[in-house]
Design a protein around this nucleic acid. Structure first.
Lengths: 217, 217
DNA sequence: ACGTGATTGTGATAAAATTAACAAGCTATT
DNA sequence: AATAGCTTGTTAATTTTATCACAATCACGT
């Protein structure tokens, strides 16, 4: 089953589309585990609450993966999406700030299952430094460059509180990190152009309070 | 300082705008703590990395808060935004699933500081039930309706793993919850129309792996 | 091999969000 | 009080995103 999927520039796909591609991927994994072989854009899109036309438009960014009149091969499409999403490889990450959030992140099953492996944990707390968690020694941040180099780490996860986020970001970039996931409540200003994704728990909560305040009845 | 801000329907403001309003609010809090009294759209928007015209456009959804030629009164605008975002009141929430993520959530300082108070924690683990955490007894889910009623709880936070998310969602709605923050890796299908916000850590990570895969150099 | 029913891929259209542009209005200064 | 200098609020233009609509294509039964 050869498809024209040649020489496409996946780097130009909008972020919104990437996020939906991941939804499709998750839904496909689900179908796969149930042994489903074929799926139509109509049925798959319904699973993730988007319009079928949008699903097809999204896939059009990447190539042609279906057969008209029939639908998509679940396994094939899933594999292709995994490739586009970079889930066909393993990735290494380091984490800075081993508090509650950092701890929860490292323990999060889904992350490990998707091929993201922790290679370094950093904290400023003297009491934590030297402890070993799941085979990883908690280190002082000064060891970051060494660990990043030795383990070929690409991703940095920032789970420090408040303002120390920026200095951690700087150190990560210096160490050679090129993509950051930031849980700290600060807007990072990277010295070099790298990719940053942010998760701000407060922000999501606040959309709830806005809703509750203004949608009475 | 009276402004025309009358009878606006804040419920029609798009979600993207709400999220940015929160950014402005955070930046203003910051300015406030530094004692800044006045700020221009240019300077405030730079703080949060958006265009000045967008900031003004966003504010236009809500009313008129500035004075031409001068700028915005930091304290006044901050108060107004807090009102629009529903941060002028206290909110009560319950949390289901007291694992790593649930634990991290309850301990998260920023949430408490913004006026969100935990009133109930639920888990299915027999060993956890009965334990008291920060004055809250961990209960079986059967006690949910009672606790929601007694403490006037509006918000439900779901931090259970995998598929149990849906049944927890159903129970929350039954108990009277009208807004849910979902950390579980499932797309919730609420029986009644309520407000749901989702945080999917995997999804954000995957945008990083996509970036790393396709933006080499 | 031909027609039928189904479903994709895509060009056209519509809607939403962002950016630009500028008139209206305030402040300060002379 | 008139002018100059800013900055807002708002309309218009642009860009991005989502939806529609349908021709192209395939599978399958006859």
């Amino acid at each position: 089953m050869v498809k024209k999927n040649d020489n496409r520039d996946f780097s130009q796909i909008p972020r919104v589309v990437i996020k939906r591609l991941f939804k499709y991927h998750s839904a496909l994994e689900n179908l796969l585990s149930k042994g489903t072989v074929k799926v139509s854009s109509k049925s798959l899109s319904a699973d993730v609450h988007v319009k079928a036309s949008q699903l097809r438009k999204d896939l059009a960014y990447c190539g042609e993966f279906g057969t008209r009149g029939k639908g998509y091969d679940v396994k094939y499409l899933n594999g292709k999406l995994a490739e586009i999403l970079g889930l066909h490889t393993e990735w290494n990450y380091i984490l800075a700030g081993f508090g509650h959030v950092g701890h929860a992140f490292v323990c999060y099953e889904g992350i490990f299952r998707k091929g993201f492996n922790v290679k370094g944990i950093f904290d400023i707390d003297e009491k934590k430094i030297g402890q070993v968690f799941r085979g990883i020694e908690i280190c002082d941040i000064s060891k970051m460059p060494e660990i990043v180099r030795e383990h070929n780490v690409q991703i940095g996860v920032i789970t420090v509180p408040f303002d120390s986020g920026q200095s951690v970001c700087d150190k990560m970039i210096e160490a050679g990190i090129t993509a950051i996931l930031n849980f700290a409540p600060v807007l990072l200003k990277p010295k070099k152009s790298i990719f940053i994704e942010r998760i701000d728990i407060s922000r999501e909560l606040v959309t709830l309070s806005h809703y509750l305040s203004h949608h009475k009845e």
